[in-house]
């Protein structure tokens, strides 16, 4: 599949974090970027748009990231979810991976880390 046909959902309550990820994604091509600022909206967008990759924060309004992972995985067991969070404790990491997250990036992230993940799951 051409990169320009790919869809990515960025879910973070911080507009700044969403922008930082969007800016990195923009270098890969004209892909479709979807945004959510809370957990429930992320689930709703996922179900309606079925994006190829999800970047997901953990601490968010309405539903936290762990619940979002579980609900998305229940909807599509092949969903690719990469957690991007400042809360990279062992417990949190275990929780996210057990719920079905494919990867975990600790904030602050570098551009290289993000590019590696995009290459791994999207390109």
């Amino acid at each position: 599949m051409n990169i320009n046909d790919r869809k990515v959902l960025i879910c973070d309550d911080s507009i700044l974090a969403r922008k930082q990820i969007k800016d990195i994604l923009a270098a890969f091509g004209d892909l479709t970027i979807l945004e959510a600022f809370d957990g429930q909206t992320a689930i709703d967008i996922y179900k309606s748009q079925k994006p190829d990759l999800v970047f997901l924060d953990i601490v968010m309004p309405k539903k936290d990231g762990n619940i979002v992972i579980k609900e998305i995985m229940a909807f599509n067991k092949d969903a690719i979810i990469v957690v991007v969070s400042s809360v990279g404790t062992h417990t949190q990491l275990k929780c996210a991976l057990e719920a079905g997250a494919a990867d975990f990036i600790q904030k602050p992230f570098s551009k290289e880390q993000m590019v590696d993940v995009i290459n791994k799951y999207l390109v």
Binding site: S14, I15, L16, A17, S86, G88, T89, K107, P108
Partner: peptide, 22 residues
């Protein structure tokens, strides 16, 4: 974006603190 920078800083700092505590 300016306000989000303040949010991001405190969130990052507190996040790193609880990672260290763990």
């Amino acid at each position: 974006f300016v306000f989000a920078s303040i949010e991001d800083f405190i969130n990052l700092h507190n996040g790193l603190f609880i990672v260290n505590a763990s």
